[in-house]
Design a binder for these strands. Structure first.
Lengths: 136, 136
DNA sequence: TCCTTGTTGATATATTATACTATTAGAAAA
DNA sequence: TTTTCTAATAGTATAATATATCAACAAGGA
């Protein structure tokens, strides 16, 4: 046996699925700690990271912020609100195979995948910004 | 007048251009400190960040790592080596206008731009990995 | 039930970046 | 040139995120 099936792992994975909307490790911890009051933050970080490495979850890295985790494994992309940090799905049928092929042709690197994150404003922050602009 | 033209700013911008290959703030600091031994790291971080905000430089955010800065302002993309962290340019003529338009159609967010980073292995790390695999 | 060792909890530590504040030094005006 | 105003700096403290370390624990096969 190589990896053991612990209550912590089960609960963490379940929490990501229940939270659904791209929780950070901290948010997962807050959810899990309700059921396992003694769980350590380190255990949550450790397991989220290894689950992402093993393909049970997707990790969405946010420069300058906490990583988010996604229970949805089908290929899709994400939009990040530059104001409040909200993260949402965006389903495009970008031809990823083509993009990878093109990238490999243009580079000496051996390219395996890519991360595409859109930046913008969520409807809420957009409304606020527009309202603020009206005052000027 | 709003922003002042300091020796520190000039030297930092010059350093990014001289280093050319996507230095991190730390690498810029190491270069700048040769000419200005008393400069503070905080000054380097502060100015790189504000220059990126004002469009004098491009910031390449790397989740889990330090941001890199690029003196090249023309639209292009980057490849990150997952082994050693090396970062290189990759010039694709992705139709960014189309991609933004498509993303905006598919999302309730007001999307302004996006970050596209490819992940793979640099030739050096690839060779090492291949050599290692031969042993098995 | 025992035994091996993967896993946990707790804490220390690393890394990157920003906040804070007294002091310095651009640059406009006198 | 000198004065004046205040943006910017140096130095340090602090924040935020994540990993390293290790003794104690527990999963699960024998």
């Amino acid at each position: 046996m190589e990896t053991r099936n612990t209550i912590q792992k089960q609960t963490i994975l379940m929490a990501v699925k229940e939270l659904a909307n791209h929780p950070t490790a901290e948010q997962v911890y807050e959810k899990v700690v309700e059921k396992l009051p003694n769980i350590s933050r380190a255990t949550v970080y450790r397991n989220l990271s290894s689950m992402a490495d093993r393909g049970l979850l997707h990790r969405i890295g946010v420069p300058g912020g906490a990583d988010h985790y996604d229970h949805t494994l089908e290929t899709h992309y994400h939009v990040l609100c530059t104001e409040c940090g909200a993260l949402e799905d965006i389903w495009l049928q970008e031809s990823q195979a083509d993009l990878l092929k093109l990238a490999n042709e243009k580079s000496s690197f051996s390219i395996q995948n890519y991360q595409l994150v859109f930046h913008g404003m969520c409807p809420c922050c957009k409304a606020k910004a527009d309202a603020l602009n009206q005052l000027h």
